[in-house]
Write a protein that binds this DNA or RNA. Structure first.
Length: 284
DNA sequence: GTCCAGGAGAGGC
DNA sequence: GCCTCTCATGGA
């Protein structure tokens, strides 16, 4: 029934619930059910293994969970003298960056602006339920993430009704551009990191933050470093003594300090800040 | 009831 | 270039 993935130093629950993907649903048996592209799978962690149901989903899951990478090399790349990052890694060393489908990632993060993780999740599940291809796995039902064509033909008004608010226009425009063939996200694969950033910024509603989320979580550009309100707070408080930091100075610091796997560092810092008890939420 | 969120774009200066 | 304002919604 289930196939097994070797997954040392891996934390399935943290990875699926760390604000990268928003649709994994916990099951009574401790597994998580959700779609990877158009395949509905159930994933369950057992010590150093991840059990994948059905077995045909094995390679899909391996790729999605990035279990084909050398994670130790990522951890070794981090600046040794950085105690803030070290604490975040120690808090949840098994956290991984996912390798998500391109459109799903772009569309989901277009809905993310000025939204809390819980609400992005609600929108994602609703879009899947209302507009996605219905899938079944035993008793489990779920919807695939709706295609650009499905989103385009649903129309902006329908997307608004599904709770997207002012974000509906951006999602709809992107869906229409992709459905018509005017733009192809796969073309981004061949671009270098800087070119890919420019490519993504051409979508209306995509700024530097969302572009970096898509570069990191979908295109696997592991140096991409999304700066949201959480990360900005962590950086200001823990790396800049609480002072306001000009955006340009911040960007320069990120590139030089965190290095080739800055995106991973960012995810550890984000997850730690957002979920740990000692989370910093000081405000003026 | 109030606060705030994995932002971006437009307009004013 | 850097502010400030607006957009929309519901979980915490």
């Amino acid at each position: 029934m289930a196939a097994t993935l070797h997954a040392p130093n891996f934390d399935l629950e943290a990875t699926l619930n760390s604000g990268q993907a928003f649709h994994w649903e916990p099951q009574a048996d401790g597994s998580f059910a959700g779609c990877i592209a158009d395949r509905l799978v159930a994933l369950r962690q057992r010590r150093d293994e991840v059990l994948v149901t059905p077995t045909e989903g094995l390679e899909t899951a391996r790729c999605y969970l990035r279990l084909d990478e050398n994670h130790d090399a990522v951890l070794r790349s981090f600046p040794a003298e950085d105690s803030v990052l070290a604490a975040a890694v120690a808090y949840c060393p098994g956290l991984r960056i996912l390798r998500q489908p391109l459109w799903e990632c772009l569309a989901t993060f277009l809905t993310s602006s000025m939204k809390q993780v819980a609400h992005i999740r609600q929108m994602s599940l609703r879009l899947r339920r209302e507009l996605g291809e219905p899938l079944r796995l035993g008793d489990i039902k779920a919807g695939a993430f709706p295609s650009p064509a499905a989103m385009a033909s649903a129309g902006e008004q329908r997307l608004r009704e599904l709770g997207l608010g002012y974000r509906a226009v951006f999602v709809h425009r992107a869906a229409a551009r992709l459905a018509s063939g005017e733009a192809r996200l796969e073309d981004g694969e061949a671009l270098d990191d800087a070119e890919l950033l420019e490519f993504l910024l051409r979508f209306d509603g995509v700024g530097e933050k969302i572009a970096n989320c898509v570069r990191l979580f979908a295109f696997g550009r592991l140096s991409a470093f999304p700066v949201d309100v959480w990360i900005e707070r962590v950086l200001r408080e823990r790396y800049f003594g609480g002072d306001e930091v000009p955006r340009k100075e911040l960007t320069s610091f990120l590139v030089h300090h965190f290095g080739d796997y800055g995106g991973y560092a960012q995810q550890y810092l984000f997850h730690h800040a957002r979920t740990s008890k000692g989370k910093s939420r000081s405000r003026p």
